[in-house]
Simulated assay, not measured.
Amino acid sequence: MSLRGVIFDMGGTLLHFNPEGTSWEESEKIATGAVYNYLRTLEYTLLPEQEALDAAWEVTRNTWAGIEHADVKSLKLDMVLGTIAQGWGAADLPGDVYQDMAAAYMSAIQPHVRPLDGVYEMLDALRDDGMRLALISNTFWPGSVHVQDLERFGLTQYFERLIFSADAEAWKPNSDVFLQALDALDLAPDEAAYVGDSLYFDVWGSKQAGLRGVWIEQPDPWLPEGIEVTPDATIRTLPELPAIARDWAAVPDAPQVGKRG
């Protein structure tokens, strides 16, 4: 079928969330360090700081690695941070502390959020070509906070539907979250492409749901053992995408069997 819509990942695809020059691990330790300092102000007795940050990274990495089979109701920032804090020695936290931990974590990251190069050029071109656009983000954060980031950079105007996994309780690479976006755009799977920086969550996940998968090439691709995937297209920069989308949109639809003119 001809391409009619493009759905995007957010972090690493449209917006950077890691401070410039830092890895994902370093960025997580900046954010969990803010949580650690907050709990110290409440006089909780915690693990030594470096040990605590290393333990927090282990929880985060393991949570993401097992996300396909996780209880979706537990995949929310305050709950993940509660697990981390318990491992540090802070148990039986009152409800308002969970909220304040999440606020400390997000406040450490948000000043560093910035658009990827070429994002406006790319989105303008797709919109001018008549593509229907949506966004799906795997995120523990409340979607309202991400909407603030997107609005800050003038990006919400481009999308008909924004889906944030913690709110939707549906996560890539599982097909249900892709189908939610397709329903919102009134598209069949073979009429849409999904664009992201993860071979597993974005490309493998979208292809399992019947979409085309476009990979933003990364120096260290990661796939779980036993999974193989070939992107339908690979790009290095966002402005490469509209030409690919135009080529796919130009493919004539297959005739429908049994349909008469």
Results as ranks from 00 to 15, higher is better:
residue 9 D to R: 09
residue 13 T to H: 12
residue 20 E to L: 14
residue 22 T to H: 05
residue 22 T to F: 07
residue 23 S to F: 05
residue 24 W to V: 15
residue 30 I to F: 04
residue 33 G to Y: 02
residue 35 V to R: 00
residue 38 Y to I: 04
residue 42 L to M: 13
residue 43 E to T: 09
residue 44 Y to R: 08
residue 45 T to F: 03
residue 49 E to Y: 10
residue 52 A to D: 01
residue 62 N to T: 13
residue 63 T to S: 10
residue 65 A to M: 06
residue 75 L to A: 06
residue 76 K to E: 10
residue 91 A to S: 10
residue 93 L to R: 02
residue 97 V to G: 04
residue 103 A to H: 07
residue 105 Y to W: 14
residue 106 M to T: 09
residue 107 S to I: 10
residue 109 I to Y: 03
residue 112 H to G: 13
residue 119 V to H: 04
residue 120 Y to H: 06
residue 135 L to K: 00
residue 141 W to F: 15
residue 149 D to A: 15
residue 149 D to Q: 15
residue 151 E to F: 06
residue 151 E to C: 06
residue 154 G to L: 13
residue 158 Y to N: 04
residue 159 F to H: 05
residue 174 N to H: 05
residue 174 N to D: 10
residue 179 L to R: 10
residue 181 A to R: 01
residue 183 D to H: 10
residue 184 A to T: 07
residue 186 D to Q: 07
residue 190 D to Y: 13
residue 193 A to S: 08
residue 196 G to F: 08
residue 198 S to M: 09
residue 198 S to W: 06
residue 199 L to T: 05
residue 202 D to S: 05
residue 203 V to Y: 02
residue 204 W to G: 03
residue 208 Q to E: 10
residue 208 Q to N: 09
residue 213 G to I: 04
residue 214 V to F: 13
residue 216 I to K: 15
residue 217 E to D: 11
residue 218 Q to N: 11
residue 230 T to S: 08
residue 232 D to Y: 06
residue 234 T to M: 14
residue 241 L to D: 07
residue 244 I to V: 14
residue 247 D to E: 14
residue 249 A to C: 02
residue 252 P to A: 13
residue 252 P to G: 09
residue 258 G to V: 12
